[in-house]
């Protein structure tokens, strides 16, 4: 009997604290598998954000730094500029990246810092208890929009891949999902490409991953997968938004 899915070395063998059905664990595994396959664990520095994935600094088996909310791309800039031989990735949620950290992500893309950003979009603030995010869908309920998001009051969901695609320095942008196993595999390929780009000095790469938050969506994990399929993907279409090689 052969074990087909060995636990990646780039993930510390410990139980993760995430809620049942939360997508963070799926994506953690994918990043770790990619680090193993590209043999970069020994020179990778990851940035753990503020939010549910704050403890990612414990989970990834590589050098890790935990930073203030939204500032991952700025920290990545400092890390990469001082240690160009390192592979630097910033792991960020949607409140982190598309609200408080909007300036950092945009300007890091403008400078085309040669880093990899993994953007977890679950359309809500998880750690703080389910407040409305910039990515919250119209009509979706959250603790700061209890009757559902009303675009007249709070605008419409921000689409980060589409926004960043207008920036010349953003070299690779893809939106994927992890709500089915085939989509998980597609997500892994995207993550791999985003890391490979950094190895090849292509420039700024980001993968936006549609994720679930069963706890704060207040629906069970299986129905959460369906929610991604039926609701989220309509607002946030999957696909490659930018794929340009270096030099341009």
């Amino acid at each position: 009997m052969q074990l087909l899915n060995k636990r990646p070395e780039s993930l510390v063998d410990m139980k993760m604290h995430y809620c049942p059905g939360c997508s963070h664990g799926i994506v953690h595994r994918l990043i770790a598998e990619v680090m193993d396959e590209l043999d970069i664990r020994n020179r990778t520095i990851g940035i753990a954000p503020v939010g549910c994935s704050v403890f990612a600094d414990k989970y990834f088996n590589c050098d890790m730094i935990q930073g203030p909310h939204g500032r991952g791309p700025a920290i990545a800039t400092g890390l990469k500029r001082t240690t160009p031989g390192a592979i630097v990735f910033s792991y960020q949620g949607d409140g982190d990246l598309s609200s408080i950290g909007m300036a950092e992500i945009v300007h890091t893309a403008i400078r085309s810092e040669n880093i990899t950003v993994i953007f977890i979009n679950n359309a809500i603030y998880g750690m703080t208890g389910g407040q409305m995010a910039p990515t919250t869908l119209i009509g979706q309920k959250a603790t700061t929009c209890v009757y559902g998001r009303d675009p007249k009051l709070t605008g419409n969901p921000i689409k980060m891949c589409e926004l960043l695609a207008t920036i010349k320095g953003a070299k690779y942008l893809e939106r994927t999902s992890v709500h089915t196993a085939p989509n998980v595999i597609k997500t892994k390929n995207a993550i791999k490409k985003a890391f490979k780009n950094q190895i090849d000095n292509v420039g700024f790469s980001m993968v936006e991953i549609l994720s679930t938050c069963p706890t704060n969506w207040k629906i069970d994990p299986v129905k959460s997968l369906k929610y991604v399929n039926d609701n989220m993907i309509k607002v946030f279409p999957l696909g490659v938004y930018k794929d340009s090689k270096g030099g341009e």
Partner: peptide, 19 residues
């Protein structure tokens, strides 16, 4: 059938697939 779809989607790395 060892397709590994379960282990791919398991967020807690709780499933090992053998063949």
């Amino acid at each position: 059938i060892a397709c590994q779809q379960c282990s791919r989607i398991c967020p807690d790395l709780a499933i090992d697939v053998y063949k």
